[in-house]
Amino acid sequence: MRADVGAQLRKGVVEYCVLGLLAREPMYGWQLSETLVTRGLIASIGTLYPMLTRLRTQGLVSSFDEESDAGPVRKYYRLTDAGIRELAEFRLQWAPFSRTVDELIEEEHRVEEHHAKERNVEEDHHA
Protein backbone atom coordinates (compact mmCIF):
# COMPACT_ATOMS: atom_id res chain seq x y z
CA MET A 1 0.00 0.00 0.00
CA ARG A 2 2.78 2.42 0.85
CA ALA A 3 4.26 2.13 -2.65
CA ASP A 4 0.95 3.21 -4.20
CA VAL A 5 0.55 6.39 -2.16
CA GLY A 6 2.69 8.54 -4.46
CA ALA A 7 0.98 7.22 -7.57
CA GLN A 8 -2.48 7.75 -6.09
CA LEU A 9 -1.67 11.30 -5.04
CA ARG A 10 -0.23 12.17 -8.43
CA LYS A 11 -3.16 10.62 -10.21
CA GLY A 12 -5.59 12.71 -8.22
CA VAL A 13 -4.05 16.05 -9.07
CA VAL A 14 -2.10 15.72 -12.29
CA GLU A 15 -4.99 16.81 -14.52
CA TYR A 16 -5.34 19.97 -12.48
CA CYS A 17 -1.60 20.51 -12.78
CA VAL A 18 -2.04 20.38 -16.56
CA LEU A 19 -4.81 22.95 -16.27
CA GLY A 20 -2.55 25.06 -14.05
CA LEU A 21 0.31 24.94 -16.55
CA LEU A 22 -1.98 25.83 -19.44
CA ALA A 23 -3.42 28.73 -17.43
CA ARG A 24 0.01 30.36 -17.60
CA GLU A 25 0.47 29.95 -21.36
CA PRO A 26 -0.54 27.68 -24.23
CA MET A 27 1.86 24.74 -24.43
CA TYR A 28 2.49 21.93 -26.92
CA GLY A 29 2.43 18.26 -26.00
CA TRP A 30 6.15 17.66 -25.73
CA GLN A 31 6.60 20.81 -23.64
CA LEU A 32 3.87 19.74 -21.24
CA SER A 33 5.26 16.23 -21.05
CA GLU A 34 8.81 17.42 -20.31
CA THR A 35 7.55 19.67 -17.52
CA LEU A 36 5.41 16.97 -15.92
CA VAL A 37 8.01 14.20 -16.29
CA THR A 38 10.74 16.43 -14.81
CA ARG A 39 8.51 17.17 -11.82
CA GLY A 40 7.77 13.47 -11.41
CA LEU A 41 4.05 13.85 -12.03
CA ILE A 42 3.83 11.50 -15.01
CA ALA A 43 6.07 8.64 -16.12
CA SER A 44 6.09 9.34 -19.85
CA ILE A 45 4.48 11.19 -22.73
CA GLY A 46 2.18 8.16 -23.06
CA THR A 47 0.31 9.27 -19.95
CA LEU A 48 -0.14 12.82 -21.17
CA TYR A 49 -2.08 12.41 -24.40
CA PRO A 50 -4.99 10.31 -23.09
CA MET A 51 -5.32 12.95 -20.38
CA LEU A 52 -5.31 15.79 -22.94
CA THR A 53 -7.88 13.93 -25.04
CA ARG A 54 -10.07 13.56 -21.97
CA LEU A 55 -9.71 17.21 -21.01
CA ARG A 56 -10.56 18.25 -24.55
CA THR A 57 -13.60 15.95 -24.64
CA GLN A 58 -14.78 17.60 -21.44
CA GLY A 59 -14.34 21.02 -23.03
CA LEU A 60 -11.70 22.13 -20.51
CA VAL A 61 -8.89 22.36 -23.04
CA SER A 62 -8.78 23.21 -26.73
CA SER A 63 -6.00 22.86 -29.29
CA PHE A 64 -4.71 24.91 -32.19
CA ASP A 65 -1.85 24.62 -34.67
CA GLU A 66 0.88 27.23 -34.75
CA GLU A 67 3.88 27.46 -37.01
CA SER A 68 7.11 28.27 -35.23
CA ASP A 69 9.85 30.43 -36.76
CA ALA A 70 12.44 27.70 -37.07
CA GLY A 71 10.66 24.51 -36.06
CA PRO A 72 7.68 22.49 -37.23
CA VAL A 73 3.97 23.31 -37.02
CA ARG A 74 3.02 22.40 -33.48
CA LYS A 75 -0.28 21.57 -31.87
CA TYR A 76 -0.71 23.83 -28.86
CA TYR A 77 -3.17 23.32 -26.03
CA ARG A 78 -4.86 26.09 -24.08
CA LEU A 79 -7.54 26.42 -21.43
CA THR A 80 -11.12 27.07 -22.40
CA ASP A 81 -13.40 29.22 -20.26
CA ALA A 82 -14.75 26.02 -18.71
CA GLY A 83 -11.17 24.97 -17.96
CA ILE A 84 -10.47 28.28 -16.25
CA ARG A 85 -13.57 27.83 -14.09
CA GLU A 86 -12.64 24.23 -13.27
CA LEU A 87 -9.16 25.30 -12.20
CA ALA A 88 -10.53 28.13 -10.06
CA GLU A 89 -12.87 25.68 -8.36
CA PHE A 90 -10.01 23.28 -7.69
CA ARG A 91 -7.85 26.06 -6.26
CA LEU A 92 -10.63 26.92 -3.83
CA GLN A 93 -10.83 23.32 -2.66
CA TRP A 94 -7.14 22.52 -2.74
CA ALA A 95 -5.95 25.18 -0.28
CA PRO A 96 -8.17 24.12 2.67
CA PHE A 97 -7.73 20.46 1.77
CA SER A 98 -3.92 20.56 1.82
CA ARG A 99 -4.00 22.68 5.00
CA THR A 100 -6.18 20.08 6.69
CA VAL A 101 -3.91 17.24 5.58
CA ASP A 102 -0.86 19.20 6.75
CA GLU A 103 -2.44 19.75 10.14
CA LEU A 104 -3.35 16.09 10.55
CA ILE A 105 0.06 14.84 9.50
CA GLU A 106 1.83 17.41 11.63
CA GLU A 107 -0.35 16.52 14.59
CA GLU A 108 0.76 12.91 14.36
CA HIS A 109 4.34 13.98 13.88
CA ARG A 110 4.21 16.20 16.98
CA VAL A 111 2.72 13.39 19.04
CA GLU A 112 5.56 11.12 18.00
CA GLU A 113 8.06 13.85 18.81
CA HIS A 114 6.49 14.30 22.21
CA HIS A 115 6.69 10.56 22.96
CA ALA A 116 10.30 10.48 21.83
CA LYS A 117 11.17 13.39 24.14
CA GLU A 118 9.46 11.65 27.06
CA ARG A 119 11.40 8.46 26.39
CA ASN A 120 14.66 10.43 26.29
CA VAL A 121 13.89 12.14 29.61
CA GLU A 122 13.09 8.79 31.24
CA GLU A 123 16.29 7.24 29.91
CA ASP A 124 18.34 10.19 31.24
CA HIS A 125 16.61 9.89 34.61
CA HIS A 126 17.42 6.16 34.90
CA ALA A 127 20.98 6.77 33.85
Binding site: Y28, W30, T53, P72, K75
Partner: peptide, 20 residues
Protein backbone atom coordinates in the same frame (compact mmCIF):
# COMPACT_ATOMS: atom_id res chain seq x y z
CA UNK B 1 -5.36 -1.22 -28.85
CA UNK B 2 -5.04 2.40 -27.74
CA UNK B 3 -8.01 4.48 -29.00
CA UNK B 4 -7.10 5.82 -32.43
CA UNK B 5 -7.62 9.45 -31.44
CA UNK B 6 -5.11 9.08 -28.63
CA UNK B 7 -2.54 7.05 -30.55
CA UNK B 8 -2.71 9.49 -33.46
CA UNK B 9 -2.03 12.39 -31.09
CA UNK B 10 0.89 10.63 -29.45
CA UNK B 11 2.53 9.77 -32.76
CA UNK B 12 1.83 13.23 -34.20
CA UNK B 13 3.11 14.99 -31.06
CA UNK B 14 6.34 13.02 -31.06
CA UNK B 15 6.76 13.29 -34.85
CA UNK B 16 6.40 17.08 -34.73
CA UNK B 17 9.05 17.30 -32.03
CA UNK B 18 11.48 15.09 -33.95
CA UNK B 19 10.76 16.81 -37.25
CA UNK B 20 13.68 18.66 -38.78
Amino acid sequence: GVPTEVSDEIVAGIAEELSG
